[in-house]
Simulated assay, not measured.
Amino acid sequence: MTSQSIEHTEDSDDVTICAPRKYDIVFSNIFKYTVLHIFAFYGIYVVLTKAKWQTFVFNYITTYLSAFGVTIGAHRLWAHKSFKATMPVQIVLMLMNSLAFQSTAFVWIRDHRLHHKYSDTDADPYNASRGFFFSHIGWLLVRKHPLVLKKGKTVDMSDIYNNPVLKFQQKYAIVVIGLCCYIIPTYIPIYLWNETFSNSFYANILRHVITLHATFSVNSVAHLFGTKPYDKNIKAVQTLFVAFISNGEGYHNYHHVFPWDYRAAEFGGWLNPSKWIIDVLAKYGLVYDLKIAPKRLISARIERTGDENLFDKH
């Protein structure tokens, strides 16, 4: 099905970016992420020295599958409603999203919509104004800023709360995410090619942590280091490195200007596999109503707020 060319604007309230930086540390989260990363570092050793080659290939594939559950599912489909998907596609994306385990889709989408509405302010859950570490992973180690909690209640989530597929994930989160992220990926190598439990377990943890950091990099690197061809007044930037490791989410300056464009980029198709998959699914009618920013709107925005000297046509 062909893409729709639309114009759209998002409302944004004025929220301070200069409030005192106070951190209420959540020690249980620090412990959890510390253990997870220790296991992941050991997973590197396991994958490189002990695990079977089939296990390496399997975890390479599941890394991409889980990432698509975030980039195509939670992000482009559900958070931004940049296209529509049939029920079978939504179910598959929900399972892939559960494989990624970046909280439930309910929580991920609410935080992301809040991030776009109050980007780089104290109402932004992963506020890049607080520095690289905070926007990358630090925000998960401390309690949310009061403005995040306050403004989070104002985000319209009715479409998500009424989505039967996401309601199922939320209701049975422990079982669904536990099976998809940890149990099934660990036992498939054991039963199909006689991998040891230890090798399979640590390799799978490494897969999980790699996917986490790929997503975290969109919040951190892509808000600090790169070019701003579409809007030089915001923190979000274009960065090929993040595009490479996050299945096409690195064209972030464009994405923050046109968040409802399913491509999440004007150019860069060769580093945007999420777009490729959506295009293929659309060809077979599995997804439809793809939204795309018209060229005249893009050009007008570049002239008004962009930095044409840094225009990134990758």
Rank of each mutant, 00 (worst) to 15 (best):
T34Y: 12
G152A: 01
D13E: 05
P229T: 13
Y230R: 06
I298Y: 06
W139I: 04
V165W: 01
Y202I: 05
F168T: 14
S274Y: 00
P185N: 07
A222P: 13
H8Q: 08
A40S: 15
F258H: 14
N163Q: 04
H213F: 15
S98K: 06
T227N: 12
S217K: 09
H112L: 01
G69C: 11
G269A: 12
Y42K: 11
E303N: 13
L192Q: 07
I38M: 14
D261P: 11
T227M: 05
D120G: 06
Y118I: 01
P229F: 09
K52R: 15
Y23I: 10
A265H: 13
I25V: 15
G268T: 13
F39G: 12
I184T: 05
I184P: 03
N194S: 08
A67H: 10
R76H: 06
D120M: 08
G69P: 10
L281V: 00
E266P: 02
V142L: 02
S66Q: 09
I298K: 09
A173I: 04
T2Q: 12
L224N: 12
A173E: 11
Y254W: 10
V70M: 08
Y23V: 08
P20Q: 11
K22A: 05
D279N: 12
F83V: 05
N253M: 09
V35W: 07
D261M: 13
W139R: 00
L65D: 10
M94L: 03
D120H: 05
S158Y: 00
S158P: 02
S82C: 04
S200E: 03
A79E: 05
T196I: 05
T86S: 07
E195C: 02
F27C: 04
K313S: 10
K283A: 12
R207Q: 02
K84N: 07
S135N: 01
T9I: 09
P294V: 04
I278Q: 06
S28A: 14
F225G: 05
E7Q: 07
F133N: 02
K150R: 08
Y60T: 15
L65V: 14
I205W: 00
W139F: 10
E249A: 06
K167Q: 14
L212H: 13
D13P: 04
R207M: 03
R207S: 08
R263W: 05
P164C: 01
W193M: 02
N253P: 10
L114D: 01
F41E: 05
L212E: 10
F27I: 11
I298D: 03
K171D: 12
K275T: 12
T305R: 08
P20V: 09
H223D: 12
K313R: 14
P20A: 04
A222Y: 08
A40G: 12
D261Y: 07
D261L: 08
T63H: 09
S158D: 10
N219M: 04
A85N: 02
T154P: 00
